[in-house]
Amino acid sequence: MNDRWIEVADRVWVRRLEELDQSLGLVVGDESCLVLDTGVSADAGFAYATAIRELTDLPWQVAYTHDHFDHWFGTAAFGESAVWAVADGAHYVRFGDEQRRKWAAKYRLDGREQDARRIAASRLVPPNCRVQGAVGLDLGGRTVVLRQVGPAHSDNDMVVEVPDAGVLFAGDLLEQGAPPSYDSAFPIEWPQAVEYLLSWKPRIVVPGHGEPGDYWWARSQARDLAEVARLCAEVAQGFLTEDEAAEHGPFPPGTMRTAIARWKELTPPPPEPAPQPEPARTLPPPVVVYDFFDYSVDLTGN
């Protein structure tokens, strides 16, 4: 699959990438545009920025759906601009450095030396605009809503709603064509977050990876996420074993085991039973000793 544009609504595009089957976003207003996520490296970001300039020459702002490397390592290509995210810049820099080392090493082990160098050389651009709750962003004749969600797929998820077009950019809260990633997720809270997002019934839902879908596709995946949460609860109750939950879940066994392991990591162990006080020691009842007297009773009255 070559990188390509899909226009899902009026002046709302999805950039489908071959790398990681990723879906980036672009929303264009009359005065500016919003770029949703920027790709896996600075080189990928430059290619994306060039493709955007084929559609519009308006000034841009950038939004990060969350802090995983494939969604923001390409931002250096966009120069000086507002960058919106839920987590703060210090978190992005710290976590970004960890991810850069990890993924460069992984690509080298996979024999992808050039990709490893691209990630290692990417300049990290932390966000400079914080989203807490919801922010309405005026692009000129069109307002988009940046909404904090979760915890769900991560502890700093953000989605972008385009109400006038009926489009929801869901980030990695939803994925098409591959199971969702539970490595740093919150399995119990995740389905609740998605249900909340779908309450306004968007017409088009764009996942972080895979092809855009409709509302009913998103509803189906929300049910699968809820089933994972239910199976985790049944494992906790001892009704199912971990093997049973993994084999009979809505996603492949490997994904299910990751979800269960993550749930166990987040669930504190049951408290140790409080020590029971020793029963109070009671003294035995006193022993009453009666003196024995030999009485001779004269019944004659003498």
Rank of each mutant, 00 (worst) to 15 (best):
V228W: 02
D224V: 00
S23V: 06
M256A: 04
A77P: 07
L299H: 13
L24D: 06
A87K: 02
L26S: 02
L225P: 05
W13M: 04
M256W: 08
E18V: 11
G213F: 08
L20Y: 11
T50S: 15
V144A: 03
H91S: 07
P273V: 07
F46M: 11
E272P: 13
E242C: 06
H68R: 13
N302F: 13
G254R: 10
T258M: 12
R94K: 13
C129F: 00
G45V: 02
Q148S: 14
R257I: 03
T300F: 11
M256H: 08
P180C: 05
T300W: 06
G79F: 00
R94G: 06
L17I: 08
P127A: 00
L266T: 09
R147Y: 02
A87P: 08
G39Y: 01
G249W: 07
D57R: 12
V289P: 01
W216K: 10
P163N: 09
P250E: 05
G254W: 02
T38D: 00
A246V: 03
P250D: 07
P179C: 05
L299E: 11
Q237R: 14
D138A: 12
Q148G: 11
P127F: 00
H91A: 03
V93D: 02
G29E: 06
T258S: 14
R219C: 08
